[in-house]
Structure formats: C-alpha cells, structure tokens
C-alpha cells in the first residue's frame, strides 16, 4: 500500500491523463454541524492548479480560506466533492492514506514555523524523511542539502531558539522542500516576521518558484498576495475572484 501508484486510483485521474492539473478541486463543499444549524465553510468550490503555478489564496478571516487550506493540505476531507492531487483522489482517503499524501505531496510552511523546539534544525528538516521511511545516511545528506539550499548549511546543529525568525522560517521551508513535494503550501508565511525579513522570505519563494516548484500561498495581506502570479479571492465560502496577474 505504501508504494501504491496514485494513478491506479481511478481511470478518470485528470492530471495524469491530461498532464496538466496538479491539483483539481471539483464542487467541493465543507459543512460543519453547529448544533441543529449547518454551517457551510465552503460552497461548491472548484478550481485547478497546474504544475509550477504561484498561486495566492486571499480572503478575510472567516471567509473559508483556512478551511480551504486544510483541504488542500490534506489535513481534512471535504463533505462533498472530489479533490485530486497529482493523480490521487484524496477526498476518499483514510487518515493514514492522507498522512502518506501529506508526507509525499505537500510541503507545509506555517505562520508560526511549527518547528520542534527541542530538535536541531537538521532533525526538524529530517522529519518528513523519517516518516517516509528513509535510512539515516541518505536522510542526513538530503536534509543537509535542503538546509544549504536555504542558505542555512552552517546552522544545522542549532535549535530553533538559537535562530532568528527569518532563519526559523527558512528551516521550515527547507523541511517543506526536503521531500520534493508536489506543492509548497504556505499559510501566512510572513505573518510572524518583520517587514525586512518578510521581503527576504518572499524573495526565497520567488526563487523556489523559478526553480520549478508549485507554490500556494494563503494570506490575508494583499501586498503579499500581489507577488503571486495568480490570486484566488475567497469570501463567504465562495470563490469571489480568480485572476491571473503575471
């Protein structure tokens, strides 16, 4: 099951057959039961993301953007609709299958970095590889390389509290990238950083994009979103706008 080919999941697999969409959301609903009342966090949301897109999802708080991010990140399953990622029908998956998809396909970058405080930068970056079952030797090398790629090759033995905010976020980005995921999913990645460091991190995202990575940025800051090449605006659980900037 570990090595199962996602393409075998269904003959209708959109991206594999058409070679286009990396992510495909089709009429996605997310409904929460609040007592007797049904709360629709997402209503009939559909969109596709192609390989090497740089997409920002923007919306005010309560718009459903966090819910959407959790769905894209395979932390949650939709109430209705189909979600395909890299040929895998994620919307039908069990918890453990979702964990495998998160491990292989998604690289998370969080607002508050979410590094393990007691672990070194290297160990933090190694975590996805550990859960992928990689042996220690190649794992160290790969994590080391990922840290070097975010210019932290000399900080491998530092713990998060010995690093600046920008450095911590770069460790988190290295961790997100170490498994060569299909998408880099960043949730307010500059939200906890000062403006100078924010600019640095945004430059790093641009570089990663030009290296061929697919990036999805969730933010409520318009000027951060403006750096992306495509912006989806969410309001009241609906896609309000889907515009291409570059």
């Amino acid at each position: 099951m570990e090595e199962e080919n996602g393409n075998g999941k269904s003959p209708e697999s959109p991206s594999a057959s058409r070679g286009e969409a990396l992510i495909s959301m089709r009429t996605i609903w997310k409904t929460y039961q609040m007592g007797t009342e049904e709360l629709h966090a997402l209503r009939d949301v559909s969109f596709e993301v192609k390989r090497n897109e740089y997409l920002a999802i923007i919306g005010p708080s309560g718009s459903g953007k966090s819910t959407l991010m959790n769905l894209i990140g395979c932390l949650d399953s939709p109430s209705k609709g189909e979600y395909w990622i890299n040929g895998n029908l994620v919307s039908e998956m069990s918890d453990d299958e979702l964990a495998r998809i998160r491990n292989k396909e998604i690289g998370f970058v969080f607002q508050t970095f979410n590094l393990l405080a007691r672990a070194t930068a290297l160990h933090n970056v190694e975590l996805p590889l550990i859960y992928a079952g990689m042996r220690a030797g190649p794992r160290h090398d790969q994590a080391q390389a990922a840290l070097a790629s975010v210019e932290l090759g000399d900080r491998v033995t530092h713990r998060p509290n010995e690093l600046s905010g920008g450095q911590r976020q770069r460790v988190a980005i290295a961790r997100a990238l170490v498994n060569n995921p299909s998408i880099l999913l960043a949730d307010e990645p500059t939200g906890a950083l000062d403006s100078k460091t924010s600019v640095e991190i945004m430059h790093l995202f641009e570089k990663l994009h030009s290296d061929g990575n697919t990036i999805i940025l969730v933010t409520h800051e318009p000027d951060i979103a403006a750096r992306a090449h495509r912006v989806i605006t969410i309001r009241d659980g609906l896609i309000e706008k889907d515009e291409r900037l570059k």
Binding site: G73, R100, P128, Y131
Partner: peptide, 16 residues
C-alpha cells in the same frame, strides 16, 4: 499536542 500536530502534518501516521 502541538508536536503531535506538527508530526502529523509532516506525514506521521496514527501508528507512528
């Protein structure tokens, strides 16, 4: 709890 959340987001399964 936070650590568990982080590990899960990085691909830890329930069994892990």
């Amino acid at each position: 709890t936070k650590e568990i959340g982080i590990r899960k987001s990085l691909g830890a399964r329930q069994a892990d």
